[in-house]
Design a protein around this nucleic acid. Structure first.
Length: 442
RNA sequence: CGGAGUGUGGCUCAGCCUGGUAGAGCACUACGUUCGGGACGUAGGGGUCGCAGGUUCAAAUCCUGCCACUCCGACCA
């Protein structure tokens, strides 16, 4: 992408409403625009990051055996009356009437709808286990939206729903998601710790929140330090190995970890001083097992091996991709701006032409741009007619992991500069050598 | 929902207390000079001061009501 042809509305000053660093940087880097309280447009740069996060989430969901579909954002009130949640959900649900005066709502979650889909098609235990997920916009009319996309009212959520014949099957489904989540956050470059959690309005008796530690986190968390060094299950983990998965989950739940709502002061006090971690955290995922809470009232049954109809055991599993963008920035930035992990950077390489209009640098940049693009590397070519300083500042702000700097001085010696954003390390090398480095890594 | 605060060109803000022709910096347009860490000069364009009432000869400024947004607390991917 040529920056001169892109839509990247950089802000020089920080808008005054933004208090936390991720919100400030997202506004300054032209990633989001606020439209109302808790409601944001994702500008092109922000959307690129979101798409990359979603791609990682999809790969790991699919790897675990979940199947993607896409449900609508608008749901009927009647569906929610079946579970009893239309009245129970309260003011956070945005309730609307259509032209026929029918009561509808903007979905805050999809347990009812997925249960309706499941019950109308699945009749036999032989079709289980089943896990269906989608990545869709949710609306929750929060009392107090804040911190940009960290707590918005309209936000994207990956929500998965599992169906099993009995509790044992459902626990295995839960464990699959548990492991998929560990892998997802690891691939995004985040240290996430699963913590015992309250189940809230979703209901159920087995639940974990995945929390990343950050000083700006909304929740207070307590855990054992060893969690931070646990190895994440590898890509070739066998998700069908019931005992194997259980062993992984047992290990990851063997030490103390809880949010303040579930905090047990005595258990925490039993941890040796040096191993206690008390910090702020950002909730980036939440998984629940809730048995037949929805399948019973909504009549979701399958015939078991004995021919009798049984209510299915369900679980639901959520990740907030829009919140993850903010969480990633909280975890990856410095004074100059964002430092994207390679896996989710909107652009892997920023190509800086320090002297627009110079025949030599333009020819060199055009060649590099073509070669990188051909190799499938996401490159942002800063071809604007700006002074070098302005280009350095903007490209540091938007945080591409690599900067390829082409200036007349070094080019006179046939060299260009390759800068690593995270460390600031610079290497002077030939264009061909730089390409080898970047394409080899991609 | 309780508490605090803010609304003035695209952005950051001054002006308000003490009413009298709407300002600055950045950004934008044109021209010139500049060019390795947010350049400079000259000349321009752009705001019915959140909205509605009221007081007054006169309201960005004073009064009343409303709306929007932000922050702190209680609640939540």
């Amino acid at each position: 992408m040529r920056l001169s042809r892109y839509f990247l509305p950089i802000l020089r000053d920080t808008p005054k409403e933004a208090e936390i660093v991720s919100h400030r940087l997202m506004l300054r880097a032209g990633m989001i625009r606020q439209q109302a309280a808790g409601s944001y447009t994702l500008l092109p740069l922000g959307l690129r990051v979101l798409n990359k996060i979603n791609a990682v989430i999809r790969e790991e969901q699919n790897r675990s055996g979940a199947v993607e579909l896409l449900m609508p954002t608008i749901q009927s009130a009647d569906l929610w009356r079946e579970s009893g949640r239309y009245d129970a959900y309260g003011k956070e649900m945005l309730r609307i009437r259509d032209r026929h005066d029918r009561e509808i709502l903007f979905g805050p979650t999809n347990e009812e709808m997925i249960t309706e889909i499941f019950r109308s098609y699945v009749k036999s235990y032989k079709e289980l286990p089943l896990n269906l997920y989608h990545i869709q916009w949710k609306f929750r009319d929060e009392v107090r939206p804040r911190f940009g996309v960290m707590r918005g009212r309209e936000f994207l959520m990956k929500d998965a729903y599992s169906f099993d014949l009995d509790k044992a099957g459902a626990v295995h489904a839960y464990n699959k998601m548990f492991v998929a989540y560990l892998r997802t956050f690891e691939r995004l470059g985040l240290k996430a710790v699963p913590m015992r959690a309250d189940t809230g309005p979703i209901g159920g008796d087995l639940s974990h929140e995945f929390i990343i530690l950050a000083s700006t986190g909304e929740s207070e968390v307590f855990c054992h330090r060893d969690f931070l060094d646990f190895a994440v299950p590898p890509a070739d983990t066998n998700f069908e190995d019931i005992a194997g998965l259980q062993a992984i989950v047992d290990r990851w739940t063997s030490l103390y970890a809880a949010t303040s709502e579930m905090h047990d002061e005595a258990a925490y006090a039993a941890i040796p001083d040096a191993s206690r971690v008390s910090a702020r955290g950002i909730e980036v995922g939440h998984i629940f097992y809730f048995g037949t809470k929805y399948s019973e009232p909504m009549g979701a049954t399958v015939a078991g091996p004995d021919g009798k109809d049984t209510h299915v055991h369900m679980g639901s599993y959520g990740i907030g991709p829009t919140r993850l963008i903010a969480a990633l920035i909280e975890a990856n930035h410095d004074e100059a701006g964002i430092i994207w992990p390679d896996a989710i950077a909107p652009f892997t390489v920023s190509l800086l032409n320090l002297k627009t209009g110079d025949a030599g640098t333009e020819a060199a940049c055009d060649e590099l741009y073509a070669a990188l693009t051909k190799a499938g590397v996401d490159v942002l070519y800063d071809d604007r007619d700006e002074r070098p300083g302005a280009k350095f500042v903007v490209n540091d702000l938007i945080g591409s992991p690599w900067q390829l700097i082409v200036g007349p001085k070094s080019l006179a010696e046939g060299k260009i500069e390759l800068k690593r954003r995270r460390t600031g390390e610079r290497e002077v090398l030939t264009p061909a050598a730089a390409l080898d480095r970047l394409i080899g890594k991609a």
